[in-house]
Amino acid sequence: MAAAPALAHSPFGADALFWEGAWHLFLAPLALAAVVGIGLACAGGPLEQEIELASLAGLTCCLVAWQLPAGPVATWLAPLSIAAVGLGAVLAIPPTPWRTRPLALLAGLGAGAAIELDTRTAVAAAGAGAAMLVTSIWMLALAVRLQRRWPLALRVAGAWIVALSLLLLALAMRGLR
């Protein structure tokens, strides 16, 4: 209890950029679709594998959000990679490490490209990556439960991830957001 007030005013707690980066994950529909998509497409493996996949997605999201400038590449990359993740859920790919790792990578890539950080700094990108990691673990845990009870719901939801990604790609091509 004594530590709480002290930490609340530490340099880490006061670093608004980190939290702003984390919050950005929840502000972009495509980034959120990537989080839901990784849960739908990659759920079902052992816990260590799911943590590895979430870490991979988080790290990729951090690097892409930090280094990829906003522009046509990001506009295309985000929806196409997230559509691929949704397609993975539709096809109900068995959750083996070598099949799910590329999907986790694509989810991180898509989320990072969809997030448009106000200030493209390492700290803000780390916030986005951390949020991607934590929410991916939650989504994987939630999707595993859903997979056991109602597996076809994962396929249906995956199809809607694909549809949303392609529609947003069409809108972006028309210059609309």
Binding site: W138, R149, A153
Partner: peptide
């Protein structure tokens, strides 16, 4: 099982609804 699965679908949709509230 279906009721629980439906509840999880609602949670899933709730997560997706987050941007609206946020």
């Amino acid at each position: 099982g279906y009721v629980a699965a439906a509840a999880e679908c609602v949670v899933l949709a709730g997560v997706a609804l987050l941007p609206g509230f946020a």
